[in-house]
């Protein structure tokens, strides 16, 4: 430390390299406006949007570029349920466990999903395809029970419909893989 007191430039360059350019630019924009530190949560949303989760490397980079203590960044990332600190599957299955869905039998849908996928909440299938998560309400209670897979919300899901539903996404993943090849 004492020999080289100012390695700011070096650290900054390293932090910039750890993040996609649009997020680096975004942080730059925030700093021009009042209260830049208030954009921490929005920034973490962007990072998670890009990588699917918040890795330590990226959180440190955000801390550095936004000039917010790393402890504070971790504090925020762990406080909010929406943020994930570990990688997740290609499709995130979000089962609503809100009141409306609960009284309409969401617990049974959960059982079926766990059985079919062989995983518990917070886990990812071995093939990396699905992660199972619970949500406290997706705002489509009128269609309960509701399950969100990726960006699609599915209403009126019964245990019987689960296998076919999963099949759609397995096929989707397959065709996506083909496309990328």
């Amino acid at each position: 430390m004492s020999a080289k007191t100012d390695n700011l430039k070096e650290v900054e360059a390293r932090s910039k390299a750890a993040l996609p350019q649009d997020i680096v630019d975004w942080i730059g924009e925030c700093k021009k406006r009042p209260h830049p530190e208030s954009q921490l949560i929005s920034t973490l949303h962007k990072v998670q949007g890009h990588y699917g989760y918040l890795a330590k490397e990226q959180m440190d980079a955000v801390a550095q570029l936004m000039q917010i203590p790393a402890s504070k960044v971790t504090g925020v990332a762990t406080f909010y349920h929406f943020f994930r600190l570990h990688p997740r599957g290609q499709f995130i299955i979000n089962v609503c466990l809100g009141t409306a869905c609960y009284v309409k039998g969401a617990d049974r849908v959960v059982e079926k999903l766990k059985l079919e996928l062989g995983i518990d909440f917070g886990e990812t299938t071995k093939d990396g395809l699905f992660s199972l998560e619970a949500s406290r309400c997706l705002g489509t209670c009128g269609l309960a029970p509701v399950v969100m897979i990726g960006d699609d919300v599915h209403g009126g899901v019964t245990p019987d419909k689960v296998p076919a539903l999963l099949e759609t996404y397995i096929n989707k993943a397959r065709s996506l893989r083909k496309q990328s090849r």
């Binding site: 208030s38 921490l40 949560i41 909010y80 929406f82 943020f83």
Partner: peptide, 26 residues
């Protein structure tokens, strides 16, 4: 626009304010 991040308590006024300030929503 500021986004929440999945904490019910952030509906409470003072927690919501903390959240907009970029802090833990307590």
């Amino acid at each position: 626009i500021r986004l929440g991040a999945g904490a019910f308590v952030c509906g409470e006024e003072t927690a919501l304010i903390h959240s907009i300030e970029g802090l833990r929503g307590q």
